[in-house]
C-alpha cells in the first residue's frame, strides 16, 4: 500500500459483505450489461440472417471446446487458491494462482492459433458481419482474460507474502465470470451452425 493510508470508510461493512468483494460484484454487474449488449445484438442479427450459418460452419469447434476445458480447469485452480487463502496459506494460494495464469496463457495461445489460421485463410474482422461479431466478442473476452491474468499476477505476488489475501477471492470471482462469459460464447459462436 504505497501512498495512501486505508480510509476508515474501507474498513466498514454495513452490509456484512466485505467492501472489495461487493465492488467486484458490482463490476461484474456492469460487465454483464456490456457483454449482454454485444451478445443481444449478435443474437438478434444472427436469428434474422439465417445464412450466417454458412460462415459459422468455419469456426473451429474443437479449439473452442478445448478452450472451454482450459478455462473450466483454471476456474477450478482459482477456487482452490481461494480456499488456500481462506486457510491463510499464502504460498499455496500463490501456486494455484499461477496455475490459473498458466491456464489463461494456454487459452490465449489457442486463441492466437485460431485467429492466425482464420486470417491466413483470408477471414478477417471485415469479412462479413458474422466474422465481425466473432472477432469482437472473442476479442473483448480475450482482453478480459488478459486483464485478469495481469491483475492475478499482482495478487499472487502479494499473496506469497501473505498480504491482502482477501483479494484472491475477488480476482477469483472475476475469473469465474470471464469463464461464464466463455461458457455462453462457446455455443453461440462455435456450436450453433
Amino acid at each position: 500500500m504505497s501512498s495512501c493510508t486505508i480510509p476508515i470508510a474501507n474498513t466498514r461493512s454495513v452490509t456484512g459483505i466485505r467492501t472489495a468483494k461487493l465492488a467486484t460484484w458490482w463490476i461484474i454487474g456492469s460487465e454483464i450489461v456490456i457483454f449482454g449488449g454485444l451478445l443481444v445484438s449478435y443474437l438478434l442479427l444472427r436469428l434474422h440472417n439465417l445464412d450466417w450459418a454458412h460462415d459459422a460452419a468455419h469456426t473451429n469447434t474443437w479449439a473452442g471446446a478445448f478452450n472451454t476445458f482450459v478455462l473450466l480447469t483454471s476456474s477450478y485452480f482459482v477456487v482452490l487458491a481461494h480456499q488456500a487463502a481462506e486457510e491463510r496459506n499464502g504460498a499455496q494460494a500463490y501456486r494455484y494462482l499461477w496455475y490459473t495464469i498458466g491456464g489463461g496463457l494456454v487459452f490465449m495461445l489457442v486463441k492466437a492459433y485460431e485467429y492466425g489460421t482464420k486470417i491466413h485463410h483470408g477471414i478477417t474482422l471485415s469479412s462479413g458481419v458474422f466474422w465481425s461479431f466473432y472477432y469482437t466478442a472473442t476479442g473483448l473476452h480475450g482482453c478480459h482474460v488478459l486483464a485478469g491474468m495481469i491483475i492475478m499476477a499482482f495478487v499472487a505476488h502479494a499473496a506469497k507474502k501473505g498480504e491482502n489475501l482477501h483479494r484472491v477471492e475477488c480476482i477469483g470471482i472475476y475469473w469465474h465470470f470471464v469463464d461464464v462469459v466463455w461458457i455462453f460464447l462457446f455455443p453461440l459462436l462455435y456450436i450453433a451452425k
Partner: peptide, 8 residues
C-alpha cells in the same frame, strides 16, 4: 445498468 450496451 444502462451504459453497458452502449459501450459494446
Amino acid at each position: 445498468a444502462s451504459v453497458g450496451p452502449l459501450i459494446a
